[in-house]
Nucleic acid binder design. Structure first.
Length: 542
RNA sequence: GCGCCCAUAGCUCAAUCGGAUAGAGCAACAGCCUUCUAAGCUGUAGGUUAAUGGUUCGAGUCCAUUUGGGCGUACCA
C-alpha cells in the first residue's frame, strides 16, 4: 500500500515536477483523525517555491488519482499536511494477510540478497558474563533478528582476545590459587582475578593432576584450562537465553594464519606506520585522529588495535554488505582508531555501523552495585536469569533504547507481578489462545470476509495497528532500535485488552462473532511474531 | 583539560529523515468480575522536555553556550 501511494505521487510528479525536489515521506499519524498515512512534502516545498504550503498541498491532492476501493479520501490539513485515509475494506484485508503469512507476517524483502554480520558480546574469557554483557548479548541478538526480518542473511559473531596480557594474568591467577591449594603461603596479587570461579578451576586442576603442576606445568596449561572452562560457561549462559553464534573468532587465529603480519606489512609498505622508542606507531594523526598510537609495543607484543584492525579486514574480505559492531560505552574511545586504520587500508568503512550501548546500573533497592570483573563483586548474567527468567531478561534489555543508561533494579526484576510488562504481552497472547479454544467448543469458526462484521472503534483501531506492524519492524531494523518493537507490542496488547472488554465474541451474532474471532487470531499471530523477534516466548496458557 | 554518550511526569522509559494536542507502565486516587483468563478494563491527577540563546512555517529532536551525570582519555582490552 505504501508503494501504491508512492506511485500516486510519482504520477502526480509528472505534472508537478517540483515534487521531485524533496524526498516524499509518509508517516503514520499519531492521531486517528489524521488518517492512515500523512505526507509533509508541501511544507518542505513551501520555502523553495515561495508559495503557501496549503496551496501546494491542494494542488498536489488534485493530481492524485486514486482507486476508491483502496483509499477513502485524501485531505489537506493546516498547515499543509496531506492526510490519506484507507477504506474499511482495504484495512480489514490485513486480517487475511496476517493469517496467510502466519509466522512470516511482518517480514519484508527490502534487503534480501544482502549479507550482514553482527558482532556482539565479544567478552574476553576472563570470567562469567555480567549483567552488562547481558545487555550487549540481548541487544545484539535482537538486532540480528531484526535484520533477518527485513531480508538480510545474518551471521552472529563473537570475537575474543586470547593472546594478550589479560589472559596471562588469568593463567597466573589460577596458578596462584592452585599453589595455595597445595598449602603454599603466598599472597594473592590484588590486580589479579579474585573471583571464586578461579579457585574452582584451580581445584579441578588439582583433582586431575594432584601436586604435579607445582614444578613442571606445561607452559600454558593454567591459561588454556581457564580459557576453556570459562568459555564453556559463557556459551552455556548465552544458550540459556537463546543466543547461538555462527562463529567464535579468536585473536590467536589471526596470528596463526598470518593476518596480523599482512596488515602490519600493508601499514609499513604504505608508510602508514613508523618506529619510535622501540615501538611501532600508526600514523593516526594523519588519519584524522588526535594522536598517533602504538600498534606494537617495544616488547614486541601488539596492542589491541592491530589485531582488531586485522580482524575487521576479514569482515571485509568475507564480503558483508553490512557490518554491525555492538560495544559497551567503555569502548567508545577505541573504535575510532580501528575505523581510521581500516579506512587508511582502503576499506569502505561506511559499511560498518558501530553501535555503542550505555551501561547497566544495577540497583539493589536504592543501593548502586558497583561492578568490576576483577574484584568479582558483580552480579552474573546467570544469576539474573535464574532469578527473573529468560523472558524477563530478554524483554527488559530490549525495552530501552541502547543509547540510554539503564537502571536494573534487582528487587523489581525479581517480582513476577504486573510491574513486569512482559507478562502483559504474554497474557494477551494466552488470553486469545483461551478464547480460541473456547470458540472451537462453541463451533465458532473463522470468517473469510471479516470486514462486514467489524465496525466498533476498538476493532478499527486494532486493524490499523496490525497494518503498521511490517513498517514498524522495518524502522526498528533500519535504525537498530529493538525497543520500538516492545513499544509497538505494548500498544497492540493494550488495544486488544480494551477490545476484549468492549467487544464480546462468544454470545454475539454469528457474523460478528466470527469476524471478531478472526481479528483476534490475527492479533495473536502478530504478538507472537513480535515476541519471536525479541526472543521471548508466547505461552498458550498462563 | 580533551573526546564520546546521556538528561523528558514522583519512579522507569517511549516519541518513525524536524511535524499536528509530548505518550505508556509503575506508584497515588475513584470505579468495573452470576457472562470468552481481573496477570485485565474505565476514569482522575501528574510536564516551562536540565537552563539560556539561535536556526524555521514548525524543535524533545538540529546548532551554540552553560549545568549535572556516565564512559573513556595507556607501549591494558
Amino acid at each position: 500500500m505504501r508503494s501504491y501511494v508512492q506511485l500516486l505521487f510519482d504520477v502526480a510528479a509528472e505534472k508537478l515536477p517540483y515534487l521531485n525536489e524533496v524526498p516524499v515521506f509518509f508517516d503514520n499519524p499519531k492521531q486517528e483523525s489524521h488518517g492512515d498515512l500523512a505526507c509533509n512534502a508541501a511544507m518542505m516545498l513551501a520555502k523553495n517555491l515561495k508559495r503557501r504550503p496549503l496551496d501546494i498541498a491542494n494542488e498536489i491532492v488534485n493530481e492524485l488519482k486514486f482507486d476508491s476501493s483502496l483509499i477513502e479520501k485524501i485531505e489537506v490539513a493546516p498547515p499543509g499536511f496531506i492526510n490519506i485515509k484507507f477504506t474499511h475494506g482495504y484495512i480489514s484485508g490485513i486480517i487475511n494477510t496476517v493469517l496467510n503469512k502466519s509466522d512470516s507476517f511482518g517480514k519484508s524483502d527490502l534487503h534480501s540478497g544482502k549479507k550482514a554480520i553482527v558482532e556482539f558480546v565479544s567478552a574476553n574469557p576472563t570470567g562469567p558474563l555480567t549483567v552488562g554483557h547481558g545487555r550487549n548479548a540481548v541487544s545484539g541478538d535482537t538486532i540480528a533478528s531484526l535484520l533477518e526480518w527485513i531480508g538480510y542473511s545474518v551471521d552472529r559473531e563473537y570475537y575474543f582476545n586470547n593472546a594478550g596480557r589479560q589472559m596471562r594474568v588469568l593463567g597466573d591467577s589460577v596458578k596462584f590459587r592452585y599453589l595455595q591449594l597445595l598449602g603454599e603461603q603466598i599472597e594473592f596479587p590484588e590486580d589479579h582475578y579474585q573471583g571464586e570461579y578461579i579457585t574452582d578451576i584451580a581445584r579441578k586442576l588439582h583433582e586431575q593432576y594432584g601436586d604435579t603442576l607445582r614444578e613442571n606445568a606445561p607452559a600454558d596449561l593454567f591459561k588454556d584450562t581457564a580459557e576453556k572452562e570459562i568459555f564453556a560457561d559463557i556459551e552455556k549462559t548465552l544458550k540459556s537465553i537463546g543466543i547461538v553464534f555462527q562463529t567464535y573468532y579468536n585473536e590467536n587465529s589471526l596470528y596463526a594464519d598470518g593476518k596480523i603480519d599482512d596488515v602490519l606489512k600493508q601499514f609499513k609498505d604504505n608508510n602508514l606506520s613508523y618506529e619510535s622508542d622501540g615501538a611501532t606507531w600508526l600514523r593516526l594523526s594523519e588519519m584524522g585522529q588526535d594522536a598517533d598510537k602504538v600498534i606494537i609495543k617495544s616488547t614486541g607484543e601488539p596492542t589491541y588495535r592491530l589485531p582488531d584492525i586485522a580482524y575487521h579486514t576479514t569482515k571485509f574480505n568475507r564480503e558483508y554488505d553490512l557490518i554491525v559492531d555492538l560495544f559497551g560505552s567503555d569502548h567508545n574511545a577505541t573504535y575510532t582508531d580501528v575505523l581510521a586504520g581500516l579506512k587508511a587500508l582502503g576499506h569502505d568503512t561506511d559499511k560498518i555501523k558501530v553501535l555503542i550501548h550505555q551501561f547497566v546500573t544495577i540497583m539493589q533497592g536504592k543501593e548502586i552495585v558497583k561492578m568490576s570483573t576483577r574484584k568479582a563483586n558483580f552480579i552474573t548474567l546467570d544469576e539474573l536469569i535464574a532469578e527473573t527468567g529468560r523472558d524477563a531478561v530478554r524483554y527488559f534489555f530490549n525495552m530501552r533504547s541502547i543509547t540510554t543508561h539503564l537502571n536494573f533494579d534487582l528487587e523489581i526484576a525479581k517480582k513476577q507481578t504486573d510491574e513486569n510488562p512482559v507478562f502483559y504481552l504474554q497474557y494477551a497472547h494466552a488470553r486469545i489462545s483461551s478464547i480460541m479454544r473456547m470458540a472451537e467448543e462453541q463451533k465458532i469458526g473463522f470468517s473469510d470476509n471479516p470486514a462486514d462484521g467489524l465496525s466498533h472503534e476498538d476493532e478499527i483501531r486494532l486493524l490499523r495497528k496490525l497494518w503498521q506492524f511490517e513498517n514498524e519492524v522495518l524502522i526498528a531494523a533500519e535504525n537498530f532500535e529493538p525497543q520500538r518493537i516492545t513499544v509497538y507490542l505494548e500498544e497492540l496488547a493494550a488495544m486488544f485488552h480494551r477490545f476484549y472488554t468492549s467487544c464480546r465474541i462468544i454470545g454475539s451474532e454469528k457474523a460478528v462473532a466470527e469476524a471478531r474471532l478472526t481479528l483476534s487470531a490475527a492479533v495473536r499471530q502478530t504478538i507472537k511474531n513480535g515476541l519471536s523477534i525479541l526472543g521471548v516466548s508466547a505461552p498458550e496458557r498462563m
